[in-house]
Amino acid sequence: MSGFQYGVSLYSYTDDIGTVMGLDEALEHVADTGATGIEILSESHIPAYPEPPAAWIDHWFARIERLGLVPTNMACWVDTNITQTHNRTEEEGAAQLAQDLRLAHRLGFRYIRPKFGVIDEELTPHPIWRGAVERVLDLADELNITIIPEIHAPTPIRHPVTEAYVDFIQKTGTRNFGLLIDTGIFQDRPLPYWPGETPEIRKAALSFLDGIKVPVEHLAEVIEYVPFIQAKFHHIDDHLHDHNIPWETIVPMLKKLNYTGYLSSEYEGPRDPWVAIEQVRRQHCLIRKLERDMEASHA
């Protein structure tokens, strides 16, 4: 049985990178988990984005080679309402995607995750997404990169947003577009209130933070279009108990569906210095243990 591939998104170390650690230290922490996949955020971790200095690119490759890391996904953005009076056109959206595809290719990435501007609270992407993506499919194919918008709470799997992406794949027949599943959609217990959040605010506008509880069985309906998973989580305690994400049901389902892609850790919890380093390690310990248990029970 082939296993999962393990990775870490540098998003996990938000606020630590740039205040208590640099990019190099972050990569060291990733490698020390035993992960092989490195996921970055274009506008966060690439100096002078979108045109990093050549010396930095050399350093990037030297560093990941030494640490045994492989670039996985480069998260990027298509900011539709780029000014208060102008929404980006399909052509402008395509130009942004083309720029990020080329940059991702230069840095060795296989996926990009564009985050399009949205038009409603269900995170329906701005309608330019389709025309913008269509215009860069040939380029993505040439560069061997798959474009993977994320399915992220509050958007579940059974939803017009997901269906529109699947429809796009089916109609174009492209192999360069897929779905990134963020495991936050399976969250089944509430998150603590964020700083400044009140019960009233949670109820009125942020009820999805209580968990949208997508049944893991729904993964079966889209798994053929899912090449990459962001393993979102918020808190894992000293007993390796995740307080919000039901790994004990997610892992068996992914094994049953023969998922062999990356699980790329995305810690999103309290941003006290250095907390993320330990939290990511706990998640890797927890998921690897569940995977081993599954494999042992099927041996």
Binding site: T80, V118, D120, H126
Partner: peptide
């Protein structure tokens, strides 16, 4: 801060 990927009612977002 305006985050285009936030629902319209959260644009702009306030950081204090």
């Amino acid at each position: 801060l305006r985050h285009p990927y936030f629902p319209p009612q959260f644009q702009p977002a306030f950081v204090r």
